[in-house]
C-alpha cells in the first residue's frame, strides 16, 4: 500500500529526514516512535503534502502511484488521511458542510455522483453513532471552541466519514486524558477492517496499549534505527530512548 524508499526532506536548509525506508501493507498497523526532534511530525507532514518541507531525495508510492507528485487534496482523495496533532479551528464552517464538501469532492475525483443530502445525513448519523459523537458538535463551526479531546475525536470521526485506505495519526495522544484516549482509540479500532492501514506516530507507548501495532519503528535523527513488534514499544517505555541513542552512536563509531 505505502512504500517509502530512502526519503529525505529538509526545512529551511536543515535536514530532518535522512533516508527513511518503510513498507506498510494493507491491514497493518505501524507505530513510529522516537524522541523529540527525531523527525516524526515531519514524516507525517511530508506524507500529507505540507508545503513547508522540501523533499530532497527518495520516493513514496501509494498503491503504485507517486504520492510526492500529488497535491494534498489529491493525496486525500486517493485515500490518505492525516489526523492532525493540532486540528485547526475554522469559524463559520460547520462540520456538516465541511464533510459534505470533502466527501463530494472525493466522489467527483473518483468519477462518482455527489451524495444526496438525505443519504449524506443518514451516513453521517451512522458514523456519529459508531464514533459516539455528540450531535451538537457537528452543527457547530469546525473545531471552534472544542476541547483538546473533542478535537481529536472529531479527527477520528472525519476519518470514519472519509473512509481512507491509509491513516497517519500524528501524536493523536498528545494532550489527551485517559478517558479521551480510550474513546479515540476505540474509534480507531472500530475502523480496522483488515484492509485499512494505520501509521501511528507517537512519543509515548500508552496509546499503543489501546491501538496495538503489528510493527514498531524507532525514528532517530531522521532515520528508522530500529524495528520490532509491539514488545519494542514496551521496552522503550521501560528503558527510555537513551539506549537506542547509545546504540546508534556506537554503531556510527565502529
Amino acid at each position: 500500500m505505502l512504500e517509502i524508499k530512502d526519503l529525505k526532506a529538509e526545512i529551511e536548509g536543515k535536514i530532518i529526514l535522512n533516508g527513511i525506508n518503510l513498507v506498510v501493507k494493507p491491514g497493518e498497523v505501524h507505530a513510529v516512535m522516537g524522541p523529540n526532534g527525531a523527525g516524526k511530525s515531519t514524516l507525517s507532514a511530508v506524507l500529507a503534502g505540507r508545503a513547508d518541507y522540501t523533499v530532497t531525495g527518495g520516493e513514496v508510492s501509494f498503491n503504485g502511484k507517486d504520492l510526492l507528485e500529488m497535491s494534498p487534496e489529491d493525496r486525500a482523495r486517493e485515500g490518505v488521511f492525516l489526523a492532525f496533532q493540532y486540528p485547526v479551528e475554522i469559524p463559520g464552517v460547520s462540520t456538516t458542510n465541511f464533510l459534505k464538501t470533502a466527501i463530494n469532492e472525493k466522489r467527483k475525483y473518483l468519477g462518482l455522483e455527489p451524495m444526496e443530502a438525505t443519504a449524506f445525513l443518514k451516513f453521517m448519523r451512522e458514523k456519529m453513532e459508531l464514533m459516539e459523537m455528540d450531535k451538537a458538535l457537528t452543527s457547530r463551526s469546525l473545531n471552534e471552541g472544542f476541547s483538546g479531546g473533542e478535537k481529536k475525536r472529531n479527527e477520528v470521526f472525519q476519518m470514519a466519514m472519509l473512509e481512507p485506505k491509509l491513516t497517519i495519526m500524528d501524536e493523536t495522544d498528545s494532550g489527551l486524558d485517559i478517558d479521551a484516549l480510550r474513546l479515540v482509540s476505540a474509534g480507531v479500532n472500530k475502523l480496522k477492517d483488515g484492509e485499512r492501514s494505520f501509521v501511528v506516530i507517537t512519543h509515548y507507548q500508552r496509546l499503543l496499549d489501546y491501538i496495538v501495532p503489528d510493527f514498531v519503528h524507532v525514528l532517530y535523527k531522521g532515520r528508522i534505527v530500529k524495528s520490532g513488534d509491539a514488545s519494542l514499544a514496551k521496552e522503550l517505555e521501560a528503558k527510555g530512548y537513551d539506549w537506542i541513542k547509545a546504540e546508534v552512536e556506537q554503531g556510527a563509531n565502529t
Binding site: E73, A76, V88, I90
Partner: peptide, 22 residues
C-alpha cells in the same frame, strides 16, 4: 486552515471560497 481543508480532499479553490464565505 487552507492546508487542513485540502488535507481532507477539498481542492484549493473550493477551500479558499469556503474560508472566505465563512
Amino acid at each position: 486552515s487552507m492546508f487542513y481543508l485540502r488535507s481532507r480532499g477539498i481542492p484549493e479553490d473550493v477551500a479558499r471560497k469556503l474560508l472566505l464565505t465563512a
